[in-house]
């Protein structure tokens, strides 16, 4: 009887201690997840009012935006964490999209780089994964508009889910998983190789030229439309 009591007592002590320890860990995990803002999100908060997309109705294919038969191609080299790239995306891109891409005159190709740090890599992989669903531009633009401090961990799952959630045809959770696919690596390497071949040493950097023809580097003097439009007009005039 004494041995049986001892055994039950030991078991009770062990299970009690285990349950207490597990409860502390689970509680701390739930609190931490809530504070970091990536825990379960109420449905109302996860579905913000959709805004009209800058790219609505425009063909996207992989890293390219616009008609493949557009006479002129503009290549953009950018790191999603680069503040000047974000400024260009905010100040110049909408004009180019509305006046040139939508009119079928211009095709823009995005070559993403990830030299600033870990958030660059996470953001770029997310963008490339979205490109496989032909929505790279929606995601890149969304990331630029929500750009945080360098390598502060701002490319959160929640942010990606919010951006992707506003893009018809993109499944946020699939995008989160797909961005770590190993097959994305060669695409990143291709962009890095293209940047190296173009002599890119900082971002944003641009090349302009006839679609399918020789592209030339453009040194932009400002990050507003006037900084790039003359080069596009010159290429259209050729």
């Amino acid at each position: 009887m004494s041995a049986l009591r001892d055994r039950r007592l030991q078991l009770a002590v062990v299970l009690g201690a285990a349950a207490a320890l597990a409860a502390v860990l689970v509680g701390a995990s739930l609190i931490g997840a809530r504070e970091n803002g990536s825990g379960p999100v109420p449905a109302a908060a996860a579905a913000p009012e959709p805004e009209p997309s800058l790219f609505a109705g425009i063909e996207q294919s992989g890293v390219a935006l616009g008609s493949p038969t557009a006479p002129v191609t503009l290549v953009e080299y950018a790191d999603v964490q680069c503040p000047y790239c974000a400024q260009w995306s905010r100040d110049a891109l909408p004009t180019l999209v509305d006046e040139y891409v939508r009119a079928g005159k211009l095709r823009i190709v995005f070559h993403g780089l990830a030299f600033i740090g870990p958030d660059s890599n996470t953001a770029l992989r997310t963008a490339v994964a979205a490109g496989r669903e032909n929505h790279l531009w929606d995601v890149v633009h969304g990331l630029f508009l929500n750009q945080g401090s360098e390598n502060a961990g701002w490319v959160t799952d929640t942010l990606v889910q919010e951006i992707a959630g506003g893009v018809p045809g993109l499944e946020p959770d699939q995008l989160l998983a797909a961005r770590w696919d190993k097959t994305i690596d060669p695409e990143l390497e291709r962009s890095a190789a293209a940047a190296k071949a173009a002599g890119v040493q900082g971002t944003p950097a641009f090349q302009v030229g006839p679609t399918g023809g020789r592209l030339e580097r453009v040194q932009v003097v400002s990050l507003d439309p006037e900084g790039i439009v003359p080069a596009i007009e010159a290429a259209l005039a050729r």
Partner: peptide, 19 residues
Amino acid sequence: CSTGGCETVQNSSYAEVLG
């Protein structure tokens, strides 16, 4: 990762407890 979700789990807010 053969399941494809390792990085997502590792980068989620549940990947840390008490910092």
